[in-house]
């Protein structure tokens, strides 16, 4: 088996939006995800995170480039990839009319498990994810946090090698989000499981991921461990504006101070701290730099 759970080489994805119009969602994205790690895929809306996830989960075909999940090519060997992955999509992934147990058993049966094995596995996951008291309730009647836990449990029913979580905490209240982080941390402790976490909260990736990659406009902006990807300011703990990599990352994030787990709660997500202020965080474009040089300003 390859040491990398995921290998993506120069993948592009172009959507045709009209007869002569198209949108490039991915523009030559290359990255590797080590087996057994938690990989945070970050970026603002429309950056290409979900497109990347859809290609890796065989939902979508790349326009060019290659991608392998646990060594299996997502285009040529999609059937193998599907047996090895679990996927939690952005919306609810479970049937709202089926109960918790029925959803789990259905997911197991769709992956070829015999009826008795599916029932056994469902019971185990019900206990593991604290779903016991809701086991006979329809998924559509669960609270947002519980429904999301069921989504994750359903994706794990066949013990996949790679779990894709596409914005698993979006729309959850803080308490449910914290509970979901707990679940992801618990999963991250399992050596055999690689987790790809798509999020637009840098704080979330910072807390959970071993490595992060920030994408914007379909290209990689920065990749590395959360620690190596930024240099923290000693006063605030925020990423320093003098960092030669993080400013780019911050520029693509919707709320710069959400990027910082150590800001005072007063500034977090509302008022950017000094090192996150958009004027200093946003990198100059080549055009504005040339204009400054002509004026003689630094």
């Amino acid at each position: 088996m390859s040491a990398a759970a995921i290998e993506a080489e120069n993948i592009t994805k172009t959507y045709r939006t009209g007869r002569h119009r198209s949108i490039e969602a991915l523009r030559g994205l290359s990255f590797e995800v080590p087996a057994g790690s938690v990989f945070g895929l970050l970026g603002p809306n429309g950056a290409g995170k979900s497109t990347t996830t859809k290609i890796l989960t065989t939902l979508s075909l790349p326009s060019s480039g290659t991608a392998r999940v646990t060594g299996a090519d997502v285009v040529r060997d999609a059937a193998t990839v599907r047996t090895r992955i679990g996927y939690v999509s952005q919306g609810a992934s479970t049937d709202p009319l089926l109960t918790v147990r029925e959803n789990l058993e259905l997911a197991a049966r769709l992956r070829g498990m015999p009826r008795s094995e599916a029932a056994r596995r469902a019971t185990r996951l019900v206990d593991e994810f604290g779903l016991r008291e809701n086991v006979d309730r329809a998924a559509g009647k669960l609270s947002g946090g519980t429904r999301r836990r069921l989504d994750v449990a359903t994706a794990l029913v066949h013990a996949p090698r790679v779990l894709f979580l596409d914005e698993p905490t979006t729309g959850l209240d803080p308490e449910s989000r914290a509970a979901m982080w707990g679940e992801i941390r618990r999963l991250a402790g399992q050596e055999s499981l690689t987790v790809v976490l798509t999020t637009h909260y840098l704080e979330e990736a910072d807390r959970l991921a071993d490595r992060i990659m920030i994408v914007d406009h379909g290209t990689k902006v920065v990749e590395g461990t959360p620690a190596s990807s930024r240099r923290r300011s000693p006063e605030t703990g925020c990423a320093s504006s003098s960092s030669n990599r993080m400013p780019n990352a911050r520029a693509v994030l919707p709320h710069p101070c959400w990027a910082c787990a150590r800001c005072s709660s007063r500034s977090r997500g509302r008022r950017p701290c000094s090192s996150h202020a958009p004027t200093t965080a946003r990198p100059r474009s080549a055009r504005s730099s040339r204009r400054s040089m002509r004026r003689g300003s630094p």
């Binding site: 939902l59 999509s89 919306g91 992934s93």
Partner: peptide, 14 residues
């Protein structure tokens, strides 16, 4: 398709 269940079915080995 609206709920995301379709994505689950399409990513399953069926």
């Amino acid at each position: 398709m609206n709920s995301g269940v379709m994505d689950q079915l399409l990513s399953a080995p069926i």
